[in-house]
């Protein structure tokens, strides 16, 4: 008896995926990614060597490297760099906490969302740069004004994505939480937040890039320190080599921030099975 079911004892073979490396950076992808930067560098070098563009406007890579060394040892590049990074770090912290916090509150309660909605939607449409002049009048040209403006700018993408992430929680999962008699707090912790986490992390990654870009603008517009200040000062003094040092540093740091956020995202979302190209 039961001949079918005994014959299929082995039918169901488990599927186990290979454990994922926490920091995946395959050699081939690495090399592919280097081709374009090297080509651009070569073009730059060639253009400088043959003086296609006047050296005042396009200094050679070696000159930029020397300027970098000089700025690092004789001037305060490290100090200015630190000033910019500190502003970005604090802005992300404050804007992120407020965005995630208020996003969760509005996501869980329609009343909170309706209370803040009209105000936030209006403030959102006044760009951070438009706030800066007034804030500078209040707080002066130092770091606090910039931190406030950048916090405001990163707050919105984080707030809106957190809210949307919570709104996207699957109804089935909420139903499951009810079946398992989870309390509201347990449901938030075990179901709603993990479910919204991918959205929140994407917005944090985006916000980190945004904050880094904005700090350069804000420092250029007001204040006497930071990479943004250096870049505009260099333009004024026609020190294109220093200007390009700042640009390269800004680009590389931005790249580093993005990779860091991506690694954090990957680490926290190991449970998620996605298309990895």
């Amino acid at each position: 008896m039961n001949s079918i079911s005994t014959a299929i004892e082995v039918a169901e073979t488990p599927v186990i995926l290979a454990p994922r490396r926490s920091w995946r950076f395959p050699k081939t992808a690495n090399l592919i990614g280097l081709i374009l930067p090297l080509a651009i560098f070569a073009l730059w070098q060639t253009a400088a060597t043959f003086a296609w563009i006047e050296p005042v406007f396009l200094p050679a890579p070696a000159k930029v490297a020397r300027a970098f060394w000089q700025m690092l040892t004789k001037q305060d590049l490290a100090f200015d760099f630190l000033a910019s990074v500190t502003i970005v770090g604090q802005s992300l912290l404050y804007g992120g906490l407020a965005g995630v916090g208020l996003g969760i509150a509005a996501g869980l309660s329609g009343r909170v969302e309706r209370f803040f909605g009209p105000t936030l939607d209006t403030i959102r449409h006044i760009p951070g740069i438009a706030w800066l002049p007034l804030i500078v009048l209040w707080l002066g040209i130092g770091a606090p004004a910039k931190i406030l403006v950048i916090s405001k700018s990163v707050f919105f993408p984080i707030f809106l994505n957190t809210l949307q992430g919570i709104r996207n929680v699957e109804k089935h999962h909420i139903e499951l939480a009810k079946v398992l008699t989870l309390t509201r707090w347990q449901m938030v912790r075990k179901v709603i937040l993990p479910s919204a986490l991918p959205n929140i992390l994407v917005s944090l990654r985006y916000a980190a890039g945004l904050a880094w870009a904005l700090v350069v603008v804000a420092e250029g517009l007001s204040g006497m320190q930071g990479l943004g200040f250096l870049i505009f000062r260099a333009q004024g003094l026609l020190l294109t080599d220093q200007l390009m040092v700042c640009m390269v540093v800004i680009g590389l740091v931005g790249f580093g921030i993005d990779r860091l956020m991506f690694a954090i995202q990957r680490g926290l979302l190991r449970w998620k099975q996605g298309y990895e190209g």
Partner: peptide, 28 residues
């Protein structure tokens, strides 16, 4: 908790391990 249910879709939470999913039933 006196009445358990199994749905047509497994409805396991993707962010919890097998253990975590089963343990979620015992939270309360």
């Amino acid at each position: 908790l006196a009445r358990g249910i199994v749905f047509q879709d497994h409805r396991l939470l993707p962010w919890l391990t097998l253990e975590g999913n089963i343990g979620l039933s015992l939270e309360n």
